[in-house]
Structure formats: structure tokens, C-alpha cells
Amino acid sequence: MTIHDHDLNLVGTTDLKADARARHVALRAQGPIHRVRSADGTTSWLVIDYELGRQTPAHPQLSKNPEPSTEQLRASGRHILLAGSGFCGNMLMADPPEHTRLRRLASKAFTRTVIERLAPGVEQLAHELIDAIAPAGIADLVAAFTGPLPMAVMCDLHGVPEQHRDDLQR
């Protein structure tokens, strides 16, 4: 498999977003995995193949935990949130066996009964969020949909009152 190298300049972020579809089509034509260097010299990997993308998070030679690379990342100007900061040490940033332990605990909150109880409200909120996007015809999906939807579900699960949800999200 050929790995293609790309320099990524994030200075023109608006242009980057505007050209995203065309860039994605061009990258897919070149291959499924791309090494990307940002303007500060940091290297990362872009996987654009669906099946490889599904396999990547579970690959035993890859880590989601930034801790082993902390010094290199800090040297490149990256601010890293690590365990103890309140935002790391979570399932998304953990490798097995810690990921497995946390996932087992989290799965207890998502029983069939809980999911069935939440489903109508989640579906209604999803429709409301989409309906709010539709008139504009364009949206930042993270700000308009993929941010608010899971936050609302988590607030429902934990009983956070409506008037405190914006504070929690901030």
C-alpha cells in the first residue's frame, strides 16, 4: 500500500472547508491512508477508507492515549489535556485494558430499557436540529448537530435541568 505525504496549511481554514469535498475525492483517488504534516511540523495520519477507518481505533499497534507522546506534542506547541485535567482519562482516550473497563461501566447506563425510553426524545431533537439547519442550507455540523445532540442525551441521562445545560457544555 502506498502512503501519500501531504503538507496541510490550516491558515486558510475557510478555504479548506469550502474545498473539503473536492479534496476528499482527490485523496480517495490516491489511496486510503495519507501522512499529513501541519504547518508546525506535526505529523498525523488521515485514513479515508471506511473499512480501514473502522479497524483503525482497535488496531493493537495504535494508541489513543497521548501520554507517551506528551513531550513531543508539547514541543510542537500542542496543548494536551491529560489525566487529572478533568477531560482526559476517559474511554475515548484510553487503550485496553482501561478502555475495556470503562466501556463495561458505561454500557450499564445504556440498557435496552434506557435506550427505548430515550429514543423518542433523541429522534425529536435530531429532527429539530436538522429543521433548524435546513433554511440556511449550510451549517457547521459540529456546532449545529453533533455537539448539541449527544450533550442533550447525556444531560437527560444525568438529570441535568434544561437551564444548566449551556453552562455544562461550556
Rank of each mutant, 00 (worst) to 15 (best):
73 L>W: 14
62 L>M: 07
99 H>T: 09
90 N>I: 14
98 E>D: 08
49 D>N: 13
62 L>C: 06
53 G>N: 00
95 D>E: 11
66 P>T: 01
74 R>H: 15
64 K>W: 08
93 M>R: 07
88 C>H: 13
91 M>W: 03
97 P>H: 10
88 C>V: 08
67 E>C: 04
53 G>F: 01
66 P>F: 02
85 S>L: 06
98 E>K: 12
83 A>M: 08
70 T>H: 14
53 G>Q: 01
99 H>V: 08
99 H>N: 06
99 H>I: 08
90 N>R: 11
92 L>R: 10
61 Q>H: 06
70 T>D: 11
55 Q>A: 05
66 P>N: 01
86 G>C: 08
51 E>L: 09
79 H>P: 02
71 E>C: 04
92 L>C: 10
81 L>Y: 15
60 P>I: 02
53 G>A: 00
62 L>E: 05
60 P>V: 01
99 H>A: 07
56 T>A: 14
88 C>I: 06
53 G>L: 00
85 S>G: 07
86 G>A: 05
94 A>I: 02
92 L>H: 11
57 P>G: 04
92 L>N: 09
72 Q>K: 09
67 E>A: 11
59 H>T: 00
70 T>L: 14
95 D>L: 14
72 Q>R: 13
57 P>T: 03
83 A>R: 15
95 D>I: 11
49 D>C: 08
82 L>Q: 14
96 P>G: 05
82 L>M: 14
98 E>A: 08
88 C>W: 10
79 H>C: 05
61 Q>E: 06
57 P>D: 05
75 A>P: 13
63 S>D: 01
64 K>P: 04
74 R>A: 11
84 G>A: 02
68 P>L: 13
57 P>Q: 03
72 Q>L: 05
80 I>S: 02
95 D>N: 11
72 Q>S: 03
72 Q>E: 05
83 A>I: 05
75 A>K: 15
57 P>F: 00
59 H>C: 01
95 D>P: 06
